[in-house]
Design a protein around this nucleic acid. Sequence first.
DNA 1: GTGAAAGCGCTAACAA
DNA 2: TTGTTAGCGCTTTCAC
Lengths: 326, 326
Amino acid sequence: MPATIKDLARETGLSVATISAYINGEKVREVNREKIENAIAKLGYIRNDYARSLKMRSSKTIGVVVPDMHTKITMHILAEVQNELRNFGYGTIICDSRMDESLEQETFRFMLSKMVDGFIVLPVSGDPAAVDILREKGKPVLVVNSMKERKDVSHIMIRNMCAYGEALLDMIKKGRRHIALIYAGALVTTAKERIDIYRDVLKDAGLYNEKYIFRTEYTIKGGYEALNKALEMYPEIDAFLVSNFEMSLGALTALNQYRENWQKDISFVGIDLEEDAGIFKIRPSSVNRPIKNIGRETARLIVDAVENGRLRDKYLECEYVRGDTL
Amino acid sequence: MPATIKDLARETGLSVATISAYINGEKVREVNREKIENAIAKLGYIRNDYARSLKMRSSKTIGVVVPDMHTKITMHILAEVQNELRNFGYGTIICDSRMDESLEQETFRFMLSKMVDGFIVLPVSGDPAAVDILREKGKPVLVVNSMKERKDVSHIMIRNMCAYGEALLDMIKKGRRHIALIYAGALVTTAKERIDIYRDVLKDAGLYNEKYIFRTEYTIKGGYEALNKALEMYPEIDAFLVSNFEMSLGALTALNQYRENWQKDISFVGIDLEEDAGIFKIRPSSVNRPIKNIGRETARLIVDAVENGRLRDKYLECEYVRGDTL
DNA sequence: GTGAAAGCGCTAACAA
DNA sequence: TTGTTAGCGCTTTCAC
């Protein structure tokens, strides 16, 4: 049976109120401070957060819901968010909604029953109604990369548009005429944006062709297979834009096997390859997302929403880096 | 302000006891059942788990502490554990201890204050004392891949030895005489085992040489650089055993750049490459860990420990698959 | 089958 | 500064 404040009171001869006050940073007389510290050490006291949260109606924890924990970008965001929240004194509960909208709702309820103070949500679908239940319960919500239209939540958005546009224009300038897009996953706002920008830029140039859009899985294998399939179906393709790290690795591997010196005739732009760019013989062009910052900013925004009720939107830019595979 | 059982009582004209009983699966009269269901829907009632846990002295959550969430294997384990625990009716709190022993202890305290019912720990170091505090508080603990000597916790171990031994013997049989090991991270039990088996097998064959052991980082880049460095320092090396997925990718890339047809003179065995093996022109040999099973078994063991107080040890085997890079 | 009431460990008035 | 006490939302005897 773990020690309680009452035990500390008995041990020290003080009252629970004094102990509680001390634990929460109030001043007590030096003799008492010592007594309390000794008792805490002796009994191995650890505060019961459940009792505290019940009383305070706040748990000092943030719930994070992601559709898939397996990708590099998600892992990095999660690790960073968790670490940053810890610096703010918050704990983190992470749940994987497995790309399943009803599981996502169940997860929300689970977290609500745990009295989390706020939510960070990477939604399964782009449906703004998904977070209704959280707002009904009055919980602050930060949505990542989606639900732009919703005004009662904070947003953090990775703005691909510029970098994507640059990459596409660069391809066109290079003379590419059959530019393919390989993407995966759900159509949340920023994913839609990527397709939109692809369509807009190519339409402007008179090069748009729906059949050059390929949907696959968020994996190395997914990228590898999509690229092979693309070239098999449409050998005229002379450029690839790939929208996820794992897929980029796979696609690049496929190209390297496709033909010696492919980069003479085919352009390639991947994503988030910067960190590992050094390992490629041919340094790939890449749109780099601000991986390090996303987590930190995300944590800050939700804490601001929880503690000050402040809703904010934050946009992070990507950077297009031209490599040897323009 | 979220609805409470009291609100339901007021709404239905029943007592809180009846409501509570119903919610916990007891029988009530049909009319009352309807009343309660209606009230729950109308008020959007969600049970407050903190109050419940406070009373029950159990939170139906499991704490999971990992040293680094960034690697593929960890993320897969986490996702699987979480999903399986959900099937058992448990929630999950995941924390990254960032390879830092004092952060690990802090995390344990955080979770203890959250009254988690049990712990799954991938320890930062191999030091068995790390989980003392958890056992003192009477919490069931499942340790992954470490602390074999500790008898008061459950264990799940990925047994590399067989598969590693096979791989090494295969290399020797092939005539390799300068076999290098690339590893990373902390020396928890199974990591030590990998080095032990490497040393034992090579010593037996009279081929052991400490300088062929390279320590690097758990990343693609880490594997890439370690391999290049190894070949630069000791060009006589004619075989590589690499002990993590990300590093294997990097090392393989480095080899592919090193020389055309390297596999004629150099053997390579990576880890967990099975899933992506199809993407390589040269199908790599690989020691495959039972990624899918680890999470499931882990969840089962901790639930068994929590609910039935049963301590168990489980060993999972790896499989050595010879590819074209023997 | 249902209700009244105590208490889980904590915090926060308010009193002393 | 310190103590007394009520109550957060829930479960659980024990009556009825």
